Simulated scan of single mutants.
Amino acid sequence: MPFDAATPTCAPRWRSLQADEGDCRLSLTLEGRPLISLRLVPGETLEAHLQQICPERPEQALWAACYWLLSRDPACQRLAWHLPQPIPQAVASGLLLPDQAPGRYLCERTLFWQLPQPWLGESLAGVYPQQMQLSNGKRHPRRAPKPRGEVYRRFDARLGAWVSLRTLEIGQDLERFNRWQNNPRVEQFWQEGGSLEQHREYLTKLEQDPHTLTLIGCFDDEPFAYFEAYWAKEDRIAPFYPADDYDRGIHMLVGEETHRGPHKVASWLSALVHYLFLDDPRTQRVVAEPRADNGKMIGYMHDQCFHCEKEFDFPHKRAALMILGRERFFERCKLV
């Protein structure tokens, strides 16, 4: 299973984490070097007793073991660690929580998946300071400068593939975007078919819009989808529900036929939502407004813990307001 052998602030590398495991033990090695060894005691909460750990990078070794144990069992909500010595960095980051019993620490799934590293990699710039402003009659926080390049990467154990997100580059992606938008299946819902120049104008407008981020979704670095992530407070959706300052919204388009299907949607939709919640910890909801008659997509969103708040009318379509809260996502979505 891939794991980052570099510092915690680097994006995951194309390297391999190997396991030797049984019902009551787990040993991890990274490129042939011992990383961590545990004695496991199954129960209502899996108890992990530390036996050996790499002294050069103890927090990463703990992270790797938590990742392995939580990924192999999506139903596992908590790990209990028994450590002979505290590891302050792991406690400071939220990876481990001190328990009442001396030497016992808890790793909570809902906290683990909110740690921004290594999923965000070098795109992480910290929380942008808040300053309220008015634009087009709407009061909202000033938005951070848009990132460029890859913003998210995670290995999906279910698919055995990397799922990643990068920003759209017009020079690199225009022809691909044009082909996708002119696909009759896509045009039925997006209604954005047109020429290369029309799409260049469309993407240039979004590139200059501080409230929208255009993204390309990739499996194993192969582009397959286009996403728009927007700040809901200054979007057209805002009048239709009580939008919070840091709510994010999404528009989604899968362009490559080979990457359609519910198993692929489960991977990329969870990755997209995961990225948006990690991008700013103040984001408490992700929303979407698919056409109300797009039953297949609405069903996929229900599978990823969205709920339909209501239906409403845009000028161009009858829409379903789909909402997913931060707490619900990290408690119920089966990230692996």
Rank of each mutant, 00 (worst) to 15 (best):
W268A: 00
K205F: 05
L276R: 02
A288L: 14
Y241K: 11
I298C: 15
G217I: 08
A243Y: 11
Q284N: 10
A271Q: 09
A292V: 09
A238I: 02
G295Q: 14
K205T: 12
Y275F: 15
Y246L: 13
D293W: 13
I298H: 04
N294I: 07
C218Q: 11
W231F: 15
I250T: 12
H263T: 04
Q208E: 12
L213R: 05
F227D: 01
L276Y: 10
L272P: 03
Q198R: 13
A225T: 04
W231G: 01
E256R: 02
F227I: 04
D244A: 14
R282G: 04
T258W: 02
D221V: 00
Q284W: 06
Q208S: 14
L269R: 00
D279V: 00
L213N: 03
D280G: 01
E201C: 03
P262F: 06
H259E: 03
I298Q: 13
A229M: 15
P210N: 03
E201L: 11
H263L: 12
W231K: 00
T283I: 04
L215S: 07
F224C: 13
F277E: 02
A225C: 10
F240S: 05
Y246H: 14
Y246K: 03
V265K: 00
L269G: 08
G295W: 15
A288W: 12
Y275D: 01
P242D: 05
T214I: 03
F277W: 06
L253P: 08
F219P: 02
F224A: 12
G194A: 09
T204I: 00
P239E: 00
R282D: 01
A229R: 10
P262L: 11
F227K: 01
R291T: 01
D244N: 05
I237A: 12
T283Q: 02
D235L: 13
D279M: 05
I216G: 01
K205Y: 08
M252L: 15
R285W: 07
A271G: 13
S195R: 09
G295P: 01
L215W: 05
L203C: 09
Q284R: 12
D279C: 10
Y202Q: 08
